[in-house]
């Protein structure tokens, strides 16, 4: 299983683990055991330099910080356009970017509540996305 609508990087242990968890309905980030910094999406190393990281399950609810409909997509995304992308602040204050589905531009406002869900985006592809609560 690969991550995202399109990808150009190899499947490393970190992304493989993340995708497995996502496929089982869990959104996982990493936390630094040394300084406590949380990362969602996950990182194998902390920005403090430590590689001592632990997986944690991230909250699924948050508020829209901003959004935009992509009308002119990258060539690789042509068959999916138009689509909405958004940045959301989750309940634990981490921020996440993903597509926001099932909406039209007119109904969206900054601050609306959303839920993060798992979404199969092709036979062998998976992603997380936002849905209005």
């Amino acid at each position: 299983m690969k991550f995202g609508y399109v990808s150009c990087l190899p499947e490393t242990p970190l992304i493989t683990r993340f995708v497995e968890e996502l496929n089982n309905g869990r959104l996982m980030g990493t936390k630094c055991e040394k300084c406590g910094a949380k990362y969602l999406p996950p990182r194998a190393h902390c920005k403090c330099g430590s590689a001592d990281i632990k997986w944690y399950e991230a909250p699924r609810r948050g508020k829209i910080l901003t959004y935009t409909p992509v009308v002119v997509p990258p060539e690789s995304m042509s068959k999916y356009a138009p689509y909405m992308v958004a940045v959301v602040k989750l309940e634990d204050k981490t921020r996440l970017l993903a597509q926001l589905t099932g909406v039209t531009l007119n109904m969206l406002r900054v601050g609306m509540l959303v839920q993060v869900i798992t979404r199969r985006v092709g036979a062998d592809r998976i992603a997380y996305e936002f849905k209005l609560v």
């Binding site: 990808s7 990087l9 002119v72 970017l97």
Partner: peptide
């Protein structure tokens, strides 16, 4: 390219969100 590009973000979309 690991966490943004796979969602179809473009440079206009980043600035549009800002």
């Amino acid at each position: 390219t690991r966490w943004e590009y796979p969602f179809g973000t473009t440079f206009p979309s980043f600035y549009a969100m800002m």
